[in-house]
Design a protein around this nucleic acid. Structure first.
Lengths: 200, 200
DNA sequence: CGTCCAGGTTAACGACCGCTAACCTCCCTG
DNA sequence: CAGGGAGGTTAGCGGTCGTTAACCTGGACG
């Protein structure tokens, strides 16, 4: 595995800070000067790295959707142990993402409409593929679920897992592992209940 | 029950449209002219009804939080049949809200930071009380849950229930009743799983 | 050693937007 | 029927913000 150990490039640095600021105050709520200040350069200096403010948001959202989809596909391909294990792996991957990249999770479903048409279509397509990936696996585990119901259930579980930004600052949590385990249990419980399994 | 049958006042009309627009494009993304146009008057005419754009957002968010809390308290007081029934009533009430006022649900956790300090504190306090209401009931139903865990679980279930805006346009759903029932099952399943009950 | 480019800087322009000012016009009421 | 307030209108001010222009600078390299 080619884990990157390099120092982050300036571009990456900018993207990280932009994501944080966008998540905190909304796309229209932060100015380019603030983003620049966050990385130690000032305002227009950003234009040496990005075509404009929109381009930063686009790269962030496309990146997120792409990463989620790629990671999901990888887990589906690699997991061994049947559909149950695949679903657990998907849940685990999504939770890792939701816990480690909370600003991105926030942006992901909040600022999509600020994109140019072409970018928005691309992101939507990636998101849709990711959802379909889950729907297939979920229906394999719970054959009782119709496709529309499974899709609704998947969206709802995403809502559950993406609630991490509301769980208080990272320090206030009972500990990352504990939180991850809780979210995992709840997600599986929600799916099981969606399929009508007894929950008591 | 004093159901209101009056025609909506202009103020209410403005608030409804403002909520829809804020949810669609974000607080900073819509101008006062657009809000005016949505109710058939133009731009500055709004200032006969509100002190400013901020005041509209404040009234919306305070209103939402207040309604949720009031409705929750009422359900806790009125429900008969023990803690299980109370929890079911809370879930039902929240789902009604999430399905009927989707723009407000969106605003509720998206634009809080755009408020003046005093308003934000008020909204946060109302939200906290609402959460605590749920936490108490949940811990009554599932005594195995510690308080922090119960609180995390409640936030996560809110995320699940508030996912309704992502479920596609109101027409594309399998039908309101079916969707409500699905969300209800999933919420209860998630709580049960949080408490460690067997989900299979 | 000269030169060139990557990556900064500050100044400033143009557009937009929230809000106020000034004015108009019904309609209700004494 | 006079008058006044509720609820509109348009014009325009002032500030903010994204973006561009013009300029500077240090280091890589032929």
């Amino acid at each position: 595995m080619a884990t990157r150990t390099d120092a982050p490039t300036r571009r990456e640095q900018i993207l990280r800070e932009a994501a944080r600021l966008f998540a905190e105050r909304g796309f229209h709520g932060v100015g380019v000067d603030e983003i620049g200040a966050a990385v130690g350069i000032s305002g227009p200096g950003l234009y040496r790295h990005f075509a404009g403010k929109d381009a930063m948001l686009a790269e962030l959202l496309v990146g997120i959707s792409g990463q989620l989809l790629t990671g999901g596909k990888r887990r589906v391909a690699e997991a061994d142990g049947g559909a149950e294990a695949v679903l657990d792996s998907l849940v685990e991957g999504h939770i890792d993402f939701a816990l480690d990249d909370r600003p991105l999770i926030t942006l992901h479903d909040r600022e999509l409409d600020r994109l140019r048409d072409s970018d928005r279509k691309l992101v939507r397509q990636l998101q849709r593929q990711y959802v379909e990936l889950w729907v297939e696996v979920v229906r394999e585990v719970y054959p009782a679920l119709t496709e529309p119901t499974a899709r609704s259930a998947v969206h709802s579980v995403f809502g559950l897992l993406n609630s991490t930004p509301h769980l208080g600052r990272p320090g206030a949590l009972p500990g990352r592992g504990v939180t991850a385990a809780l979210l995992h249990r709840m997600a599986r419980g929600a799916f099981a209940a969606a399929a009508g399994d007894a929950v008591l």
